[in-house]
């Protein structure tokens, strides 16, 4: 196997044998592998985890104990919801991603008899994992929006949801963007854990190649590290650029 062939395999992975493809789920997802699969899972974890994160964040009170939606609520159910959301977030954050991945692959079948393709499980577990961490970022971002803007929006007659959707979220979004991108880099790096459950992303692909190329394992792993590093470093540069741009803009304010 030449160097270029190895690189190509790491980027694209091994095609899934056709008898293992489940026709009920998107074909391209199941046949994807290597770096692209790692990136795709990261992408999907934002697609599904983003809304989850927003809901979790809105359920919780902000740092000062005020509701993030509308008027400060004192009703018991509001507090119960906030408590529940906090428990979900703290609970998932306290379990290592390695265990979350293993649980996602062994628990549904054992408890519910549910057998899903590996890629579906991978997307599911990373969506939850990402959603839980993102919700913290969103919550911080939302509570950092100055009340002056919210007051101004209210005196103009905007409803609670309009204030949230048109004023609070967009302002928070710009401030959160660096942190969200940083989170994307973290998730991307964490997809490497999927190698232990044989999802054919970058790290697992290296193991697969190693079977036929045992003498090249060291080189393969070095290549893998280089690939991860380039993507993550490019992301980090982008993050610091955005951060600087945002600071500059706030300073002009």
């Amino acid at each position: 196997m030449s160097f270029m062939e190895m690189l190509h395999t790491l980027l694209w992975g091994y095609p899934l044998p056709s008898e293992m493809v489940d026709p009920r789920y998107p074909l391209f997802l199941q046949q994807l592998g290597g770096l692209w699969l790692a990136l795709t899972i990261t992408g999907f974890s934002f697609l599904f985890g983003g809304p989850l994160a927003l809901v979790l964040a809105l359920c919780r009170y902000d740092r000062h104990g005020a509701s993030l939606v509308g008027q400060p609520g004192t009703k018991l159910d509001r507090r119960a919801i906030s408590f529940l959301a906090t428990a979900v977030v703290e609970g998932f954050q306290s379990i290592p991603i390695m265990i979350l991945v293993l649980m996602a692959f062994y628990l549904p079948f054992r408890l519910l008899g549910l057998r899903l393709p590996a890629i579906v499980m991978a997307v599911a577990v990373f969506s939850i994992y990402n959603g839980v961490y993102l919700s913290g970022i969103i919550r911080l971002g939302l509570s950092a929006v100055e009340t002056g803007w919210l007051d101004a929006a209210r005196t103009l007659g905007l409803s609670t949801w309009q204030v949230l959707w048109r004023i609070r979220l967009p302002i928070a979004m710009r401030a959160m963007l660096p942190a969200v991108l940083g989170q994307a880099i973290t998730v991307f790096k964490d997809t490497s854990v999927l190698a232990v459950v044989a999802v054919g992303e970058l790290t697992y692909t290296a193991r697969q190649v190693q079977v036929s190329q045992p003498a090249n394992y060291g080189l393969l792993l070095l290549l893998v590290l280089l690939i991860y590093w380039s993507v993550a470093a490019a992301g980090s540069v982008l993050v610091s650029r955005l951060d600087a741009a945002w600071r500059k803009r706030l300073a002009g304010q």
Partner: peptide
């Protein structure tokens, strides 16, 4: 209402 600090929406 016009505020002491303009409170224009920055975005």
């Amino acid at each position: 209402l016009v505020f002491q600090d303009h409170n224009l929406f920055p975005h």
